[in-house]
Design a protein around this nucleic acid. Structure first.
Lengths: 140, 140
DNA sequence: ATAATCCTTAGAGTTAACTCTAGGTCAAGC
DNA sequence: GCTTGACCTAGAGTTAACTCTAAGGATTAT
């Protein structure tokens, strides 16, 4: 079976070798086998597992919680429920993150328009005028 | 004009007073005025500014870059172009983050289904069977 | 066979963003 | 007038996730 070196895996996953060794130290990839001389030999399935780890990381999960999941995987079918629950919870947090990003985007888009208008006018005062203008009728 | 204490602002924005003081230390809120005895007096507009800061933070912008923006704001109309460019760039990065979150979500949803099937079968082997089954016709 | 370029470990250093502590000052209520 | 709780600063401590260094072993290319 073909295997890959840590450098090859790092390049493929856009990680540094330091990061992969750090993940190993933290117990995220206990399944990676070694050559007689101690060199890590990554199988295709190990790379797939690293991709899942990257996905969990992208979902905002801290390394220690990812380790829990990896431990559950090693424990077999007895932990299927935990793993299912974990992914359902991940789904909920990612949905929440998407909702927050949409809110953030709204504010940013509003600011883009604000500065576009200000740029066209050559001054930010154009926005302050709005309120002054609105107050004129009352002052008449 | 009504003002608010740091504690009131912290509660309203769901921050700690430590965090707000830290932002002040980092130069994010130089416009907040003080009482004679040195106590911070937050105006409504200061709270609005903190909301923009929170928005930039939510977009993944580091504090030091947010400070650049705050400095530009103090410099007036001469920096309108920079500020516009900055928000346009923010818009692009938030769009990229949304795209990545969508990818992450796909993987997670796939995993949810994977574990649902495994739970129903009582074993993860159900997924390994797929490949074995697929290889049977060839082995006949 | 020897240089270059991988790989290994243990452990120290870095960075961002808080988070807290110590030692004070200040303002409101009893 | 005194206690209580919120405010202040300077600076130390924490945490997560890397990131790198030192010292050495293995593999490949000429």
């Amino acid at each position: 079976m073909k295997t890959y070196s840590i450098g090859e895996v790092a390049k493929e996953l856009n990680l540094t070798v330091y990061t992969i060794r750090y993940y190993d130290k933290e117990g995220l990839i206990p399944f990676v086998e070694r050559s007689e001389s101690g060199i890590r030999l990554f199988k295709e399935s190990d790379i797939a597992a690293l991709n899942v780890i990257e996905c969990l990381k992208a979902s905002g999960m801290p390394i220690k919680e990812i380790k829990n999941f990896i431990d559950w995987c090693s424990e077999g079918d007895a932990t299927l429920q935990q793993r299912y629950d974990m992914f359902m919870e991940r789904k909920a947090t990612v949905e929440a993150q998407m909702a927050e990003l949409r809110k953030t985007m709204e504010v940013i888009e509003h600011k883009c328009m604000y500065y576009q208008t200000a740029l066209e006018a050559g001054t930010e005062d154009i926005h302050k005028q709005k309120n002054i203008a609105a107050s004129i009728p009352a002052s008449r």
